[in-house]
């Protein structure tokens, strides 16, 4: 079991950094999808609500990255609260993949090779993040059993 520890340690460092890579894409979304023009059609309150929703989601992703990097050792050790957090982040990213597969209609997305490549890379990153936190959770549960 302990032979996996260096791998999970590395995976957690990469996952922490990975969250900040998502920010790079997130900051481009409003301009690339023309939010300013589109959101102008909403009432002022709903427009502000959209910005607050987006900002809150962004803040949560930043927190996932910061917490993963700062509390790397606690996550690796598998404390109860750390495992709750790992489980929550795993669910967060798994649902994001499911939303992409089952809810977003890709015909509605802007066309162009850069969007296809960006979409593929982001989805791959979401999958890597989900796998890392699910793996960590399962590994720590197995450690507890053995």
């Amino acid at each position: 079991m302990n032979t996996l520890q260096p791998w999970f340690s590395l995976a957690l460092w990469l996952a922490g950094i990975g969250h900040f890579c998502i920010l790079g894409a997130s900051f481009q979304v409003p301009s690339r999808l023309g939010w300013k023009e589109d959101l102008a059609k909403l009432t002022s309150f709903n427009r502000k609500l959209m910005w607050v929703y987006a900002g809150t989601t962004l803040l949560t992703i930043i927190a996932f990255g910061v917490i993963t990097l700062l509390l790397h050792d606690e996550l690796l050790r598998g404390d109860r609260a750390a495992m709750f957090l790992a489980g929550f982040i795993a669910i967060f990213w798994t649902l994001r993949i499911l939303v992409d597969l089952l809810y977003f209609k890709h015909a509605d997305w802007p066309v162009g090779r850069q969007f296809i490549v960006g979409h593929f890379l982001l989805t791959a990153l979401f999958a890597a993040l989900a796998l890392t936190y699910w793996g960590l959770l399962i590994w720590n549960m197995m450690k507890g059993i053995s």
């Binding site: 809150t56 209609k105 509605d108």
Partner: peptide, 23 residues
Amino acid sequence: NLAKVSPIIRQIFLVHAFYIVLV
């Protein structure tokens, strides 16, 4: 309100709203 915006913006709005509840 959301009927006035493009489908992709509508989908993103609702996904954000769902994520707020999840968080």
